[in-house]
Amino acid sequence: MPAVVLGLAFLIGVLAFRLVFGLLTRAVAKRDLFWRSLVSRTRRPLRMGLVVFFLAIGVAVAPLDAAWRELAQHALLIAFIILVAWVVYTALNIWTTVRLRKFSLDAEDNFLARKHVTQSRILVRLTGWLLLIVTISAILMTFPGVRQWGVSLLASAGAAGIVVGFAFQPVLKNLIAGIQLAITQPIRIDDAVIVEGEWGWIEEITGTYVVIKIWDWRRLIVPLSYFIEQPFQNWTRDGSSLIGGVLLYLDHCADIGRIRDKMNEICRESELWDGNVCHLQVNDFRERVMEIRILASARNAPRTYDLRCEIREKLITWIQREMPEALPRTRETVSVDAANSVTAPGIEVVGG
């Protein structure tokens, strides 16, 4: 008889779930993707909540003896604790989705999007770990023996705390580093960084490590604590725009004015240039060549790299065609001993 009552309560819970979920699905069928995904995400917690609710009613009315009733109530209490944690985590994910709907990482100027996405993802993962720890602790505390053990442990918390601290030092270090990253944000999703001599983008930030997508599609896995303890370069810390540099080595007789005019023309015609920085300067003089540095800006790191390549290719092609004398040349002075010696064509006699 008790098994029949509990089985009936379980079936009623499943049927109630199907009815409620069907009504919700029909209500959002003609709405946008967000509402449909919202109902889909709450499917499993809703089913578990209704089943636990009707099972609690079944346990209350079923003719169970004291031992079985206590066991069933204990199992329902554990299920309720799991359900509360599940609902909290689901609500946090839904809130994060709602908050991030107005931001797009695909935008050219995605500084604010990277800031909010990074902060939200780190906080969601940290909250998930904390919820897991609290849930397991709450479940264990429902057992009288474990509760008594916990009280005894608290009585000797001094020595135990030191031992646990040393044992979980890497975990605690990454946990604290995750909180610091979420608040101070030295890195964000899609930041262009140089770590361990490798240039790439921040692709993913988890609760314990960071995934960096290297320019050649390799992945560099770095612990969270690295970005708190070690120096690294962040090219897009305060904005997505970057200035790219191009170095040319030309002969001293190169016409700088004409080269500067051509460079400005290339920048104006390029779809990659953001209209801010486009400069040419003679950066250095050497024995055989002079170093020319070109600076140009673009909206993000990939466009900056492509703009540098475009300027370099178009400018060197124009110099080869229009100003070949500007290409590096080697000059030598030849001393001719005999007065009537014949010099090779192209060699100029200096000093008689």
Rank of each mutant, 00 (worst) to 15 (best):
97 T>D: 15
133 I>G: 10
225 S>C: 05
13 G>T: 04
219 R>K: 11
179 I>K: 10
165 G>D: 02
320 Q>M: 12
179 I>Q: 10
151 V>I: 11
119 Q>L: 01
298 A>D: 01
265 E>S: 13
168 F>T: 06
300 N>K: 10
334 V>D: 13
219 R>S: 12
90 T>V: 13
189 I>P: 03
312 R>F: 01
205 I>W: 00
73 Q>S: 10
170 P>K: 05
297 S>K: 08
265 E>P: 04
131 L>V: 00
143 F>R: 14
158 G>V: 06
149 W>L: 13
204 E>C: 00
195 V>R: 04
76 L>D: 07
219 R>F: 12
187 I>A: 03
56 A>C: 13
288 R>F: 09
22 G>K: 01
181 L>V: 07
323 M>R: 08
324 P>T: 06
103 F>P: 00
226 Y>N: 03
284 D>F: 02
209 Y>Q: 12
298 A>G: 04
8 L>D: 11
262 K>R: 14
26 R>H: 06
135 T>M: 13
81 I>A: 09
306 D>W: 03
252 H>I: 07
34 F>D: 09
286 R>Q: 07
126 L>W: 01
73 Q>Y: 06
213 K>I: 03
220 L>G: 05
214 I>S: 11
61 V>K: 12
170 P>V: 05
40 S>T: 03
327 L>D: 01
141 M>R: 10
329 R>Y: 12
306 D>A: 07
187 I>S: 02
164 V>N: 14
24 L>G: 05
254 A>P: 04
313 E>C: 00
143 F>W: 11
344 A>N: 11
264 N>D: 15
8 L>T: 03
